[in-house]
Write a protein that binds this DNA or RNA. Structure first.
Lengths: 194, 194, 194, 194
DNA sequence: GATGAATGAGAGTTCATTCAT
DNA sequence: CATGAATGAACTCTCATTCAT
């Protein structure tokens, strides 16, 4: 019963590919990149080690793809039009950030873990820039409208602050005062609370 | 011939021990804990793998010692008396943070890298808490005096923000607008600029 | 092509596992536990070092399994009912001992080698006791019936004597007067010669 | 104060050499040959690792010498004249064996441990034969006088039995019924009990 | 497409041995 | 004679990757 019709192939490939990425994300988040073994990822996915190499060229490629997928998803979520700006929208973007953190906890855990390792960082540097720059620029447009004299620098300050809050939340989700910090951040920018 | 005197041996041990710690710091910063191998650290130090085990009991011990040394140094620097508080002092603490980041760049790189890896984090959790808690509490006393209603939560917000700025600076020291961010942070707390 | 069937894999695993145990036994017998390296065992088996860890969790596990297999086999052979005792049976047990020594020479070599190394001994202590105690006790029942006043002590004397003869045979199988010693031992207990 | 007069050298060398051998014996007995490290032996002797190589060419040489020394001592003790034979003497030889076991417990522990390892055995094979053969032959002369038809084979039986009792005593000195076994052995040869 | 047995490079670690002092 | 820092080979073990089926 091994052979299949060609028509089924593509569907199977796509599903299995995603299954591997999902499993990889879970294992990476739990054990970190070096701690996660291909064997463990395969077991998590319920498939054989060999099959992973049918879909990805290496463990590194699995990580890269995992991170890419997440980045693209984030990019989708953050799509906003800075020209039709309202402070309401700004406020929602901050809320969005923290709801994404909560929703895709595993992803952000491995994302931040990997962020700090120079050699792994290089793997995704380009993609990351491609995605972050428009977001930062979008914020800078908004901040310009809000009257900041150095909107690009202010955007980086804002980004860095969000990073800091995110990392602290990810590292210690139970005791980190998320709601307080969200409101505090909004108050700094005179944004309406939800 | 006669054997070396005890003091000669002590001198050698002290110097070599520091050489190993310095080399380890560099390699850890470049590759992360798991990515750094004892072989690489040895090569960086220009010694044999085996010699490292003459000075440290394991790779883990090398990391611990590396981080401990830095944490203790930081602790020394941050020693402040929250009861004799002035906004001037608060301002200086923020400056101190960024000047330490600049001065011990490699150290902070591995520090933040390690901070994100749960399983590595466990190794230094206790020491870290021992050092961080008094600092956070010190800040919370200051923030209470400044009139914040939730000083402990505000202290965590402040800490997280400093983390975020630090990580962004460490990741991209060339283009990160450090001075702008320092001033911005001070302005949030109505501190005097330098 | 299609993957191997489960039964094919099972067959491979069973055969290779035995191959490793056999090779390990030979190398252990020649070099002792500490002197035998996984590399040597792998070379003896004509496989890679790594593969051994596909079948056994550690070198210790290989030794344990090697010895366990032998002990269980011995236990099977020595199964006797001391209540239905005849001197004929006693005589046969002595013969059995020496025919086992001859048949599984390599096994007994490592067995006695390991017996003497306290720290290795601990690995199999429990299993060994589980098997030896009933045998010693069986003998003591027989010896009681034969009229010995201290049957348990006599059983230990008998056991020790058998050990001594066995070790001398194993150490120097060519010139040790096995047949003479078997008969001599039987004569001590007034057993019928074969 | 480093240089010494030449006259002192020889005395120091002899004493230190013996100190190393004694320490080595203790460590070997406790940990076995492979488990004992030069570092541990040096520490036990209160000297430096390097110094051991001033007296012995290798770890193997230390073991060899340790065993040699013991064998020679044993040889001294067992010196007897088979031509002036009495059963009283025979009986005393058996007693001697067990009192030596007790007196030099550490030595016999490493001796028997090493006895079973083919490759280590080769180191002392020659010396051992040189010493054992006269003893075995001495016994065979005695046994011939006692009327045994195959005195040489009987001597080997006796030797093997003594080995077995010895090993059992060494392995488990607390619960082994030494006295019973000594008497039992004597009874087999119709020797006077002490 | 799918399996897992098999490989081999490299990891951390130990330790007999050397050698400058 | 004596030291212990230093080496390097060998150890056990792991794991990304390959490949016959």
């Amino acid at each position: 019963m091994c052979p299949r019709t060609t028509s089924q192939f593509e569907h199977i490939r796509k599903e299995k590919r995603q299954l591997i990425l999902d499993s990889a994300l879970n294992v990476f988040a739990k054990k970190g990149y070096h701690g996660a073994s291909i064997a463990t990822i395969a077991k998590e996915a319920g498939i054989s080690k060999g099959l992973i190499y049918n879909y990805f060229s290496s463990k590194e490629a699995v990580l890269k793809e995992t991170l890419y997928t997440g980045l693209e998803y984030m990019f989708e979520q953050y799509r906003f039009d800075p020209d039709k700006f309202t402070t309401e929208q700004f406020s929602q973007l901050i809320d969005l950030t923290f709801s994404l953190l909560e929703k895709d906890f595993a992803y952000w855990k491995i994302y931040f873990s990997v962020l700090m390792q120079a050699e792994v960082m290089e793997l995704i540097q380009d993609k990351l820039m491609e995605i972050m720059i428009p977001i930062i620029e979008g914020f800078s447009i908004i901040l310009a409208k809000m009257g900041y004299n150095n909107p690009m620098q202010e955007a980086r300050f804002l980004g860095a602050t969000i990073d800091g809050l995110s990392i602290n939340y990810i590292t210690d989700p139970k005791s980190f005062p998320k709601q307080y910090c969200v409101n505090r951040l909004k108050s700094i920018y005179n944004l309406p609370l939800k």
